[in-house]
C-alpha cells in the first residue's frame, strides 16, 4: 500500500488523537491495577509502575471470608436482579412496543419517573420498611431495589429493540398459520434475543455498580456487596493501610466488566443509545 504524505499526516494525527483518548480512559484504571500489584514496602512510593510485582494483595483478600463472601453476594445479587428485571422488562417492553391497550402511557410515565428518581430519596423509607419486614441485610433486600431501578432501563432499551423488529413479520407469521404463541416463539423471540442479551449486560453492570443501596441496606457480610465491602476495608485492619487490599478487590470486580466491554462493546453501545436516539 502506498500512501501519500497528506494521508500519512492524517494517519499520524488520528494516531495521536486515539492515543490521547485511550490514555484518558486507562489512566486511573492502570493506577489501581499498579497499586494492587505493589508490595507493602513500595506501596507508597508513588511510582506509576510497580517496582516489585507481587500477588500478596490478592492472596490477602481471598484468604479472608470478608471479600470472598462479598464477591459471592455481588455475583448472586446482580445475577438474580438481572434475570428478574430482564424477564419482567421483556414482558412489559413487548406490550409497550406491540400492543394497543389503555394505560400504556401510564407505564411509560411511571418507568420514566423511576429512571429519574434519586435513590437517596428511597433509602430512608426502604431502610425502615426492610427492617420491619426482616429484609434488611439480606439478598432480597438488595435485589428488590436493584430490579426496580433497573426495570426502567430494561423496558426502555428492550422496547427500542422490539420496535425495530418489523411489525409485518408477526402479521406474516399469523397469516402463515401461527398461533400468537408460535409467532412469538418462532419469529419474534429469535429476533429479540440479541436485544434481551444486551439489556441483560446493561442491567448487570448497573447492579454490579451500585454503592448507595449496598452500604445503606446491609450491615454485615450477609449481603454486603463488593463495592460496599471495600469501602469498609478502610480502618478494619489496624496493622496496615488497607490500600493494597482495596486495590486488589477493586481490580477483581473490574475484571468482569472489562471482559463484557471487550466481548460485547458493539452491543453495549447499541443498547445504551437505542432508546435515546428515538427519544
Amino acid at each position: 500500500m502506498s500512501t501519500s504524505p497528506a494521508q500519512r499526516r492524517r494517519i499520524a494525527r488520528w494516531s495521536v488523537v486515539n492515543t490521547a483518548v485511550v490514555l484518558y480512559a486507562l489512566f486511573p484504571v492502570w493506577w489501581i491495577v499498579a497499586l494492587s500489584f505493589k508490595d507493602p514496602a513500595t506501596l507508597s512510593d508513588g511510582s506509576f509502575v510497580p517496582r516489585r510485582w507481587t500477588l500478596e494483595n490478592y492472596r490477602g483478600i481471598f484468604a479472608t471470608s470478608e471479600f470472598t463472601r462479598a464477591l459471592v453476594n455481588s455475583i448472586g445479587i446482580a445475577l438474580i436482579s438481572t434475570v428478574v428485571a430482564v424477564t419482567l422488562g421483556t414482558m412489559a417492553a413487548y406490550a409497550v412496543a406491540r400492543l394497543r391497550f389503555p394505560g400504556k402511557r401510564l407505564l411509560i410515565g411511571t418507568s420514566l419517573l423511576i429512571a429519574m428518581f434519586p435513590p437517596i430519596s428511597l433509602v430512608s423509607p426502604l431502610f425502615d420498611i426492610e427492617r420491619f419486614l426482616g429484609l434488611f441485610d439480606t439478598w432480597a433486600g438488595l435485589i428488590i431495589p436493584y430490579m426496580t431501578f433497573s426495570l426502567p432501563l430494561a423496558i426502555y432499551t428492550l422496547s427500542a429493540f422490539f420496535r425495530e423488529i418489523p411489525w409485518d413479520l408477526e402479521k406474516a407469521a399469523k397469516v402463515d398459520g401461527a398461533t400468537p404463541a408460535q409467532a412469538f416463539r418462532l419469529v419474534i423471540a429469535p429476533l429479540a434475543a440479541p436485544g434481551v442479551f444486551t439489556t441483560a449486560i446493561l442491567v448487570f453492570i448497573f447492579c454490579w455498580n451500585d454503592f448507595l443501596f449496598a452500604i445503606s441496606l446491609t450491615s454485615t457480610t450477609a449481603a454486603r456487596t463488593v463495592p460496599a465491602a471495600i469501602a469498609f476495608f478502610t480502618g478494619s485492619s489496624q496493622f496496615q493501610q488497607p490500600t493494597g487490599s482495596i486495590a486488589a478487590a477493586a481490580v477483581v470486580i473490574t475484571v468482569p466488566i472489562v471482559v463484557f466491554v471487550l466481548l460485547f462493546q458493539r452491543r453495549i453501545v447499541a443498547g445504551l443509545t437505542s432508546g435515546a436516539v428515538k427519544g
Binding site: 485511550v22 480512559a25 484504571v29 471495600i230 477493586a250 481490580v251 466488566i257
Partner: peptide, 23 residues
Amino acid sequence: AVRTAVLLPYGIVTVVAAFSWQY
C-alpha cells in the same frame, strides 16, 4: 480501540474509580 477504551470508564464500578483517584 477507541470505542473499547471509551466504554471502560462507563463500565467500571464508580467506587473503584473513586478509590483510584483518591489514592
